[in-house]
Nucleic acid binder design. Structure first.
Length: 374
DNA sequence: CATCCGTGGCG
DNA sequence: TCGCCAAGGAT
């Protein structure tokens, strides 16, 4: 079989055409073998041979939606410690859950999490269903999470397609179609890889591959278990995938925030509406956030207080970036006497106890800004 | 299908 | 500094 090239000797090396890596069908066994060696040890993962706890799988999946492993880890530990079972979580108050979630973002997840726990307890006797359709019907569970829980917790043969899997698959098959139009194609391609067993390991292997090797930038293809199967790798244009249309950035919005200090070391807080941005979370009083905010009229939106209030405009601003727009707030501060009562819908909170409140990070920035300049 | 919904880290 | 984007879901 060897080519007869004894005559030329060293010349052969120089003359021989560069060996072209032939793209071939990805072998799932190679990925699973890689996973057996390199699986990340994550707090919510069952140890080898142990049955995964559907509650833990679900809790971690909700937290991990659009959120990094590092950010989730401490929250997951606190939640699991405080509410070790779905019954415990279902019995908690929504406000306790929101306070425990504060800082993690996407607060609708926390409310859906709480609702979902109660539904599972009431409708499913406290046991997560393994059926995809039943999972999909639960609040906060979409296509991805339903498939992830089914596969990881129950080994149901399905492939959850998240951002990692989309990236891996789009490179593997060099999917030229742009997002989000490419999503159905990628789902189909991902499903075509599904092995006949180890659905949970396969799902997590794909995600680990995407998270640690097949990264968005500078993927470590030399360490990939599928180097030859990957079309993008063969072409050397890995970073061209997945192809995404450029998204336009949101327009700057501005507004004012009002921090009222009462002389007994408390500040005035109120709860936001239960829908929309930062829903149900706490905030300091403030103006609307608009594109044409007029700073000279900012104090019109200050909270109405019995006491005569001298507002002081604090120097500097608080900047924050939401998913779809950047925000810049000017901050006003005032001191009021101990006897001052809170306006309707607001309450006084001890400065020392602010950390226990359901305050999104934006509001923590505002409070820190005011406390620094007190 | 498009938009809304947080936050932190990283190149 | 800044844009990108991370285990998406709801509307």
């Amino acid at each position: 079989m060897d080519a007869p090239c004894a005559i030329v000797g060293a010349m052969t090396v120089a003359v021989r055409l560069p060996r072209r890596k032939k793209s071939r069908t990805p072998e799932v066994a190679e990925l699973l073998a890689w996973y057996d060696r390199h699986a990340r040890a994550l707090p919510w993962r069952a140890r080898r041979g142990e049955r995964p706890d559907p509650y833990r799988v679900w809790l971690s999946e909700i937290m991990l939606q659009q959120t990094t492993v590092k950010a989730v880890a401490p929250y997951y530990a606190r939640f699991l410690s405080r509410w070790p079972t779905i019954d415990a979580l279902a019995a908690a108050s929504l406000d306790d859950v929101l306070r425990a979630w504060a800082g993690l973002g996407y607060y609708a997840r926390a409310r859906n999490l709480h609702t979902c726990a109660k539904v599972v307890v009431e409708l499913h006797d406290g046991q997560f269903p393994s059926d995809m359709a039943a999972l999909r019907a639960l609040p906060g569970i979409g296509d991805y999470t339903a498939a992830a829980v089914a596969a990881i917790a129950f080994n149901v043969p399905t492939v959850p397609v998240d951002g990692n899997v989309e990236r891996v698959v789009s490179r593997l098959f060099a999917v030229e179609k742009e997002f989000p139009a490419a999503k159905p194609v990628i789902k189909q391609l991902a499903a075509s890889l599904l092995p006949s067993d180890r659905a949970g390991d396969f799902a997590q292997a794909l995600m680990d591959l995407g998270a640690t090797i097949c990264s968005p930038k500078r993927p470590a293809c030399a360490l990939c278990p599928w180097p030859d199967a990957c079309l993008a790798n063969a072409r050397g244009n890995q970073e061209m995938f997945p192809r995404k249309a450029p998204k336009r950035e949101g327009q700057l919005r501005c507004g004012a925030a009002f921090v009222v200090f009462r002389s007994d070391a408390r500040v005035l807080l109120r709860r936001r509406p239960d829908k929309g941005l930062l829903a149900s979370m706490m905030e300091v009083p403030g103006s609307e956030w608009t594109h044409d905010f007029d700073q000279s009229r900012a104090q019109r939106s200050a909270p109405r207080l019995r006491a005569k209030v001298q507002w002081q405009r604090l120097r500097g601003t608080v900047r924050h970036v939401f998913t779809h727009f950047p925000l810049e707030l000017v901050v006003f501060a005032a001191q009021v006497p101990r006897a001052t009562t809170a306006p309707k819908g607001a309450r006084w909170v001890k400065i020392d106890e602010l950390r226990d409140e359901a305050l999104p990070n934006l509001m923590r920035k505002v409070l820190a800004h005011a406390l620094d300049r007190r």
